[in-house]
């Protein structure tokens, strides 16, 4: 165990803890931008600088481990200036995109810029138009908005263990590139961790604003993992799926189905009324008609061939309750044990 002081508060943490983690354990907030709870510290943004008694240079709190007896100061005029300068450098070649950027309103870069009261950039850089291809057509990459924090690259490597993307180029020309498009699973992990609007979900582009949507927490219905996700609903339509970091079994990750497979919900092609085939053609019918027909057919088959002639297949995409009711119906109403489930296949 190591004991140090942060802003005059004594903190005791295990050896190897970073200053940032130590500060958070006692509710001291150090602003961060590239740091992400699920990733190893990246140390690319310099927002988390702190002063340590006896050191001339400020240190990045997210990468510096604690040491016995050090005295850390997390906010001072000098630190604010350094943070402001780091932000200004990031903003220099940032496009004027907030009004059309999907992230606008929950963008960490916006939050920090606002918090640190940056209202004028003393320097401007020449704009370079850049076009970019991303690993997956479901994800759009906006190189101009990218702040080179490396969260996406790290997440692809550390959370997924894939490494489909990397950084190429240097200076203002640097951008995220695909190193192996075949490896990309379109899981959207990079999208999830990106603090800015540099990676956006392409299906929901321009559809909603964070403060107008309602985020409804629910469980993914695609498979038995039961990932927790949030449906982003605007005007009764799902316009995107997001997750909360650290929530549920998936802790913020999703697979391609969970994250992008939501358009069917509001699809015009979905059946909204039962159809009955008459003379080789499907015709719309009422629920009463349809259920009567099914019941009649079931009874006829059961009467003629016995309940063993009927079997039921249910789905992993139904809830436990629905599956329970289904098997109950098969056993009690029909009288057969022929019940099965796609997840067994």
């Amino acid at each position: 165990m190591v004991t140090l002081t942060i802003d005059g508060k004594e903190v005791t943490v295990p050896q190897g803890t970073t200053i940032l983690e130590a500060a958070r354990s006692v509710d001291i907030r150090i602003p961060t931008l590239c740091y992400h709870d699920r990733l190893n510290p990246i140390g690319s943004c310099r927002m988390c600088v702190v002063e340590i008694e006896g050191y001339t240079h400020p240190m990045a709190a997210c990468t510096t481990p604690v040491d016995d007896g050090i005295e850390v100061v997390t906010s001072s005029e000098r630190l604010t200036r350094i943070r402001q300068d780091s932000l200004k450098l990031i903003l220099v070649n940032h496009p004027l995109d907030c009004p059309v950027c999907d992230k606008g309103g929950e963008c960490l870069l916006q939050d920090l810029t606002f918090e640190f009261g940056i209202d004028q950039l003393e320097y401007q850089a020449a704009k370079v138009e850049r076009d970019s291809q991303y690993a997956s057509p479901l994800i759009r990459y906006w190189p101009d908005r990218c702040i080179m924090c490396l969260r996406c690259v790290t997440a692809c490597q550390e959370i997924k263990g894939i490494g489909a993307i990397s950084i190429a180029g240097d200076g203002y020309g640097a951008q995220v590139v695909t190193v192996d498009a075949d490896k990309c699973q379109s899981c959207g992990e990079c999208l999830q961790v990106c603090p800015t609007g540099a990676l956006t979900e392409d299906l929901s582009r321009y559809k909603g604003r964070t403060w107008l949507i309602e985020r409804v927490p629910t469980t993914c219905t695609y498979c038995g993992c039961g990932c927790q996700l949030e449906l982003n609903v605007q005007n009764d339509r799902i316009i995107a799926v997001t997750t909360k970091d650290g929530v549920g079994i998936n802790k913020g990750s999703l697979c391609v189905k969970g994250r992008f497979g939501y358009e069917f919900v509001n699809s015009d092609e979905r059946l909204t009324k039962p159809l009955i085939k008459r003379d080789g053609k499907f015709e719309e019918a009422s629920w009463d008609e349809a259920l009567d027909l099914v019941a009649e057919k079931f009874s006829a088959i059961k009467g003629e061939y016995g309940p063993g002639a009927i079997g039921g297949l249910t789905s992993a995409r139904c809830t436990n309750e629905e599956n329970y009711l289904f098997q109950k119906f098969m056993r009690a109403a029909i009288g057969t044990n022929n019940v099965d489930h796609c997840a067994r296949l």
Partner: peptide, 29 residues
């Protein structure tokens, strides 16, 4: 003249990202 309270000038908003962000935050949030 306080960047946390008041909207920046519209001319600045049209050419400076920090002013744009400020306006965005003050207007929307």
């Amino acid at each position: 003249d306080n960047p946390l309270i008041f909207n920046p000038q519209i001319d600045d908003v049209q050419k400076d990202i920090s002013a744009l962000i400020r306006r965005f935050k003050i207007q929307c949030q």
